[in-house]
Deep mutational scan, measured.
Amino acid sequence: GGHPVTTQMVETVQNLAPNLHPEQIRYSLENTGSVEETVERYLRGDEFSFPP
């Protein structure tokens, strides 16, 4: 991942996926670069990993 992630982006995802840890959200956003894509992954039931 190398996309810039803002606190705003993390908070937006958190509102839609409250049971995800912020670190999981941030890591996913760094890989996708997209709030929409991260939320899609969540709704699909994809696994969210923590940063290594």
Rank of each mutant, 00 (worst) to 15 (best):
Y27N: 05
H21A: 10
V5Y: 12
H21R: 09
E40W: 12
P51S: 05
N19F: 11
S34F: 02
Q8T: 11
Q8N: 10
L20V: 02
V39Q: 04
Q24W: 04
H3L: 10
G1D: 10
A17T: 08
Q8W: 13
H21K: 10
R44T: 05
E11G: 07
H21V: 07
V13R: 00
I25N: 01
E36Y: 11
S28P: 01
G45L: 02
E30K: 07
S28V: 04
R41K: 11
G33L: 07
E36F: 11
F50A: 03
S49E: 14
R44N: 09
P52G: 08
D46E: 15
P18V: 08
M9T: 02
S49C: 12
E30W: 12
I25M: 00
R26D: 02
T12Q: 15
F50I: 05
G45T: 01
F48Y: 02
T38L: 05
I25R: 01
T12P: 00
Y42I: 05
E47D: 12
T7P: 14
N15M: 15
V35M: 08
P52C: 08
V13Q: 02
R41T: 05
P4Q: 13
L29S: 02
T38A: 02
S49G: 11
F48S: 01
Q14H: 11
H3Q: 10
E23L: 15
V13A: 06
P4R: 15
T7H: 13
R44M: 08
E47H: 14
G2R: 15
A17Q: 02
L43V: 09
H21C: 11
N31M: 15
G33P: 02
R26L: 08
T12F: 15
E11W: 11
T6N: 08
L29D: 00
S28C: 07
F50N: 03
V35T: 06
R44E: 04
N31R: 11
N19S: 11
E30P: 00
H21W: 07
P18G: 07
T6W: 07
Y42M: 03
E11F: 10
E37F: 07
E11T: 11
V5C: 05
L43Y: 10
H21Y: 07
Y42C: 00
V13W: 01
Y27D: 02
E37Q: 10
N15E: 13
F48I: 04
R41N: 07
P52T: 08
N31P: 00
S49D: 14
M9G: 02
G45I: 00
Q24Y: 02
R41A: 13
Y27M: 07
T6Q: 05
V13G: 00
P51A: 06
E23A: 14
F50Y: 10
V10M: 14
S49I: 14
G45Y: 01
S49H: 13
F48T: 01
E37G: 08
E23V: 08
L16N: 06
E40A: 15
G1C: 13
E36S: 11
H3T: 10
V13I: 08
H21I: 04
P51K: 05
A17Y: 09
V35K: 00
T7E: 14
T12M: 15
E37H: 07
L20S: 01
S28W: 08
F50H: 05
T32R: 00
R26C: 08
N31S: 14
S28G: 02
S49K: 14
E23D: 15
N31L: 15
Q14T: 07
R41M: 10
T38W: 03
L16T: 06
R26K: 11
P51M: 06
V5L: 06
E30F: 10
S28M: 14
G2N: 13
F50C: 08
Q14N: 06
H3R: 12
T6Y: 06
E30I: 09
S34I: 02
I25K: 01
